[in-house]
Amino acid sequence: MAPVATPWFFYVLAGLAVASGVAVITRRNAVHSALALIVTLLSVAGLYLMLYAPFVFAVQLFVYAGGIMLLFLFVIMLVNIERSSKERRFNRMWPAGLVAACALMALFISAFVKGRTLFPDRMILLPESSNTQQIAGLLYGEPGRIGQYTFAFEIASLLLLVAILGAVIMTKKKI
C-alpha cells in the first residue's frame, strides 16, 4: 500500500512538534507546559509511524504520553504553589544560556551544511508487518540463540527496579 500525502503529514507533525516545544519552554503555567509536552510527544510518535517504526510508536504512547506525563502532572499538582505563576519565568543567567544554545545551534547548522552530501536520498522500505517480531528477535533472541541486546534488556529492567526503589525511599517521610 503506498503511503498517502506523506510530505503534508510530515510538515504538519514536525511543525506541531516544534511549536509545542516552544510552548513547553515559554509558558508561565506549569500545567500548560505539561499539556504542550504531551502534544509534542504525540507528534513525535506520529513521526515514528511515518518512519515505519510502529513498535516504537506504541512504546512512546504507553511510556511517555501515558506514564511519564501523568507522573509530571501529579507532581505539578502536588508542588504547585499559587505564587509560582506570578513569578519571573527565566532565571538570572538567561543571556548566557541563550548564547550557549545559539552556539549549539550554530554547531548543528554547520554539521548539517557540511555533511549534506553524506546522507543518501534513498529510504529503504523496512518491512512493517514483521517489525515487532524482528525487535523481539533482537531483544529476546531466536530459538536456540540469545539475542544481541538481551543482556542490555536485563540491565534495563534492573535499572527500572532501582529507580522504583529509589523513588519510593526518597519520598518516604521516615526511612
Binding site: 519552554i25 508542588v79 519571573r88 527565566f90 543567567m93 544560556g97 548543528f108 548539517f112
Partner: peptide, 29 residues
C-alpha cells in the same frame, strides 16, 4: 522527505530542550 528532514526536526527539538534547561526557573519545567 529524506532522513535529513527528520534530523533537522530532531536538532530543533534538541536546541529547544537545551534552552529550556538553561533558562527556566521552575524545576519541573
Amino acid at each position: 522527505i529524506t532522513t535529513f528532514h527528520y534530523l533537522v526536526v530532531a536538532a530543533a527539538l534538541f536546541v529547544l530542550g537545551v534552552i529550556g534547561v538553561l533558562t527556566r526557573r521552575n524545576v519541573v519545567i
